[in-house]
């Protein structure tokens, strides 16, 4: 095949190469808490690295000189985010950071440090609890033999129950197997006689509050994927969350699609199912 530059490639490179959309402001806190968790785990190794280094004093002074302006930048950012539309923050933020770094201002006190520490601590506690569910349940069992129920037990009990349920997962009813072909691909569709999967065949996304979303009544799924296709085969909508319903719009752009029939393909696996199932059909959209 030829390696000449295709006009479409050049166009895409030109238009998308520097695509820098607004980042939602709520994303960094999650990264920050993950980083904090990572760091607390690597404190010892980090300390070793620092002691190996001959230039401890020099390094720490750099860190200190950076921390103050960075804190200033952080607070400047926060103020801006409160005042104005968070979307517009990005460009000014770049400027404010570089300014703050080159021109350290002693205007910020050390109080921001207090604000950082409590955020890290609760994270660690949560991690510790989540990491050792087995221990807490054993502890609960021992108490249960000796004592009456206490408030502590009530807190722990749901965890224990949830484990019991997952262990009991076994297929109860014989699955009914049916085979269907679509686009020449043979699919095995398994349906449980006990399961009641209801998929509507029409909806009206006209914002009147009645049947505005393509809603499928599945909630407790191990796996879920719904795709909506235009009849020409173009994927219009895709989700892996049962709570995420199609509203008759193109994903991301939010443009409303025309009235008509659309193809849906639903892949899902319920908790009691050993294998994923698939359902496909047409949904009629009429506003």
């Amino acid at each position: 095949m030829e390696t000449t530059k295709h006009p479409l490639d050049s166009l895409l490179k030109e238009q998308l190469g520097n695509y820098s959309p607004e980042v939602p402001a709520n994303l960094y806190p999650k990264i920050k808490s993950n980083l904090a968790a990572q760091q607390s785990g690597s404190v010892i190794s980090k300390a070793a690295v620092i002691f190996k280094n001959a230039s401890i004093v020099l390094k720490s002074s750099i860190i200190f000189s950076l921390t103050v302006p960075a804190i200033a930048a952080y607070f400047m950012l926060q103020n801006k985010q409160v005042d104005s539309n968070p979307g517009i923050v990005l460009e000014p933020s770049k400027a404010s950071i570089s300014e703050a770094v080159t021109l350290p201002e002693p205007m910020s006190s050390l109080t921001p440090k207090k604000a950082i520490l409590p955020k890290i601590k609760p994270q660690n506690i949560k991690k510790a609890v989540a990491a050792e569910p087995v221990q807490t349940t054993q502890f609960q069992a021992e108490i249960g033999n000796k004592l009456e129920s206490t408030s502590e037990q009530k807190v722990v009990q749901p965890v224990f129950k949830a484990q019991e349920i997952t262990e009991k997962e076994t297929p109860i009813a014989e699955p009914l197997e049916t085979k269907s072909t679509w686009n020449g691909i043979e699919q095995t569709i398994e349906t449980k006689s006990t399961e009641q999967l209801v998929i509507p065949n029409a909806f009206s996304p006209n914002s009147d509050g009645i049947n505005d979303e393509f809603e499928i009544n599945l909630s407790a799924t191990l796996f879920y994927r719904l795709r909506i296709y235009h009849l020409n085969g173009t994927l219009l909508f895709e989700t892996d969350k049962p709570s995420h319903h199609w509203k008759g719009t193109l994903q991301e752009s939010g443009i409303q699609v025309e009235n008509g029939s659309y193809r849906y393909i639903l892949e899902y696996q319920l908790k009691e199912q050993p294998k994923p199932s698939m359902a496909a059909g047409y949904i009629y959209l009429n506003r």
Binding site: Y19, Y28, A73
Partner: peptide
């Protein structure tokens, strides 16, 4: 692994990386 520097780093690059 200075947290403030990490945040500044994030603010600097997050937009183009989000793209």
């Amino acid at each position: 692994k200075d947290p403030k520097a990490q945040e500044a780093f994030y603010q600097y690059y997050s937009s183009s990386m989000y793209g």
